[in-house]
Design a protein around this nucleic acid. Structure first.
Lengths: 201, 201
DNA sequence: GAGTGGTCTAGACCACTAC
DNA sequence: TAGTGGTCTAGACCACTCG
């Protein structure tokens, strides 16, 4: 087993076990080389591999740092975006793009088990982590179930939607059905998320 | 501009301009180093970067080779899988998994503009490039439109489906509507294509 | 056995960042 | 000015593939 690979695995384990917090600076290449009694290039090879893996980042003149943990969604627990990001050590924020009442939109109404002609509240929010756009959310609420929702004048940029529903309407979430959809980004979505429109091959 | 980067760009250009065919062997690291009058490690750095880009591949004891061109689908022209692969210098082959007549399958019938109770020929084929599974195709043909299709006993592992329809039924393809779908692989599809079932995070 | 890529060493200079 | 990562050199031994 190559030296650089052993070193790579060792450092990775240290990071994953939490010996370094996200953003922490590692010892310099030269220091590590001296500590482990190997050549600097060998250390470098290990560090480079971890940079490629996304475990570390490095900046010339500054040092090598533990990268923020990758974004993963467990698909098992029902957590709010805000909780999620906090757990990852990222600063979550929200931009409310629109908050409106719309009349019948058939498909959504069917999904919510409503009649054909009911009104719904549509909330469009852009979710950010450390000010980088992460997700574009659209929430649909039946007006009938949440009377006076708009009059509450809750600022959904700061208040949790889950919390608001619980506080004002006594809603407790027991189950949730999450839907994942992989599709091509529309122009608007791409602009919001800062990604590329369409298919990448 | 770093030496290794200049070298990397130079080699990449040579490959892209067709000075090397796909599969060709490049000069060895030591040879290149001598030719360009730089250290072997510098050459190595350039080659490694190109391997990461997918331009080259390398095998210990053998040498460095031009990688097969990346698979891209233009989404513009109507070409058969066989033509596609030939153009890429890959050896296309086909394995016919099943060839059957099935009765009403509603959704497909609707797509083909058929009545509710018509029979269809279902052809399932696994497409390979250089013996590596590339695609899983299911073709549906209305029996009414192609009478005696099964009696033709055409071996679709070797004959083009497009050609067969043209030859025996005088069909000329003018337009096609291609549907791309991104979704999670089923167990069966995953086995056929040699990929992982389900979502990867 | 000859040639290939894979690993490793000991040393050097550079560009960049902080203090 | 001191320390960092980024680049480069000249050499060495290894594991692997081929004829």
């Amino acid at each position: 087993m190559p030296l650089y690979y052993q070193l790579q695995a060792k450092i990775k384990r240290l990071v994953e076990e939490g010996h370094f917090a996200h953003g922490d600076r590692l010892p310099s290449e030269r220091q590590i080389a001296e500590m482990v009694m190997v050549n600097r290039l060998t250390v470098r090879q290990a560090l480079m591999a971890l940079v490629n893996e996304g475990v570390l980042t490095r900046k010339r003149g500054l040092g090598t740092f533990v990268a923020p943990p990758k974004l993963e969604h467990g698909l098992t627990k029902l957590t709010s975006f805000t909780e999620d990001m906090h757990k990852r050590g990222l600063k979550p924020s929200t931009r409310v793009l629109s908050l409106s009442v719309q009349s019948v939109e058939k498909k959504v109404n069917l999904l919510l088990g409503l009649g054909a002609h009911e009104d719904i509240i549509v909330i469009e929010r852009l979710r950010l982590a450390d000010d980088k756009p992460m997700a574009f959310e659209v929430a649909h609420l039946p007006c009938r179930r949440f009377p006076g929702f708009l009059d509450l004048r809750v600022d959904l940029a700061y208040a949790s939607l889950y919390d608001t529903l619980r506080l004002h309407y006594g809603i407790e979430f027991a189950r949730a059905s999450e839907t994942l959809e992989a599709r091509v980004a529309s122009v608007r979505e791409a602009e919001l998320l800062g990604i590329q429109v369409g298919l990448r091959f």
